[in-house]
Simulated assay, not measured.
Amino acid sequence: MTSFALVLATTMPATAQESVAPQGSALEAQRANGLPLTSFYDPDGADLSVPGTLVRTEAGMGYDLPHGIVATRIAYASRDANGIPVMTTGVVLQPPGEAPEGGWPLIAWGHGTAGVARPCAPSLMKDLYYGWDGIFIYPLMGYAVVATDYSGLGTPGPHQLLSLEAQGQDVINSVPAARAAVPTLSDDWVMVGHSQGGATAIQVSAMEHGIDDPTYLGAISIAPATDYHAMWKLFPDGMASGGMALVAAGIRAADPSFDPETMVGPQIAEVLPELEQEACFGAAMELVASLPGARQPSNWPDAPGVRRFTDANRPYLQPGRGPLLVLLGENDPAIPLDITKRAIGERCKLQDEVSLETYPGMDHAQVIHASFPRQLEWIADRFAGRPAERNCPG
């Protein structure tokens, strides 16, 4: 079985994967798809005391959007994994035409791994990172979307990659900020996330169990990373990975006492500053692949700092609120089917409205398209107030 870490490149959209070719081409493609990092992304003494508060907004310019979709950038107050106030940015997409009575039904979108540097924010990409591989479909079907960048992407870092408390905060706090920026949004909302965002969807459902927000209607988790430790133990001994180099940077961002060398070794640790400053996913993969003889230490998933991190990010062991739909490709080399089934089975013991649906032959990116009819049916049911199904792993 191939592990999550070995093929972490599949956590990026299919179009982005196609750009990973000769050395240097991914960084060139990244720069060609990028938009200028402006003062909009700097906190500048903003009041971040109340999570969800809109800090500023501006028209979203420079995006390659389908005709009629209107983009609005937002900056808002959120919290990191340690509860520290941060500013987070994102984009609100409105469908073409006039909003229906009650406003556009709202989807909060959580993207997959983009990187850890400021230029890796989807709102700083002309295609918003996913483009037609995900995010554009929803507004064309009549749903507004608020797509968070996650704190540390766009805004000053560091980005706490895969620290799900931070990403969950960013998604939940994006909703009131989006409503403040765009008055034509509905009160009710659902979350949809893929890969890193899929794991965040499970986290959001757990957080909503305590928040008990009546406007939250449920979450769709597509190809989520669940049991990090079990997944990373499948990684071939010594194999170097740009994806895991990004994760090491993310762990250190949440836990400054963490020594990334215990996870990626000294040679890869030397290039982490480049990943933290500019190189996003594809460029990180190329950079680490170009290091001759780079190897990760043996048994790195059991290093104390790594274990602290994996133990702290297991929201599937917590009860959730609202329906949760998990969608997984059976041919996904990044997300092992058996590990995901066990994790969702644990959530099923704590929550009634949970459903896991798998797609034969689909991989990490393909499952997004393959599941669109099911996603749209499920989302429509949530806004219509219809009951959700339960379909737990056997």
Rank of each mutant, 00 (worst) to 15 (best):
R56P: 06
A388L: 10
V354Y: 05
I251A: 01
Q203C: 07
R307H: 05
A312Y: 00
G110T: 04
G385K: 13
A223D: 04
V204I: 14
A223I: 02
P156Y: 12
P122L: 08
D47K: 11
D227L: 08
Y150G: 03
I368V: 15
S163D: 15
E357Y: 09
A230I: 01
Y76D: 06
V146L: 07
Y143G: 03
P266E: 11
P301Q: 09
P319S: 11
A269E: 06
E261F: 04
Q23N: 14
H111S: 10
D133R: 02
P266M: 09
P22Y: 14
G394Q: 13
A21W: 11
G154Y: 01
P266D: 05
G60H: 12
R308L: 08
K233C: 15
L6M: 10
T310S: 12
A99P: 10
V354P: 02
N331I: 01
H229F: 12
L124P: 00
Y359P: 03
R321L: 14
P158E: 09
W300D: 01
A206H: 05
I268G: 00
V86S: 02
E357F: 08
S3K: 03
Y129F: 15
P156W: 08
V247E: 00
G68T: 08
P214G: 12
P85D: 00
W104K: 02
V92F: 07
Q17C: 08
S78T: 11
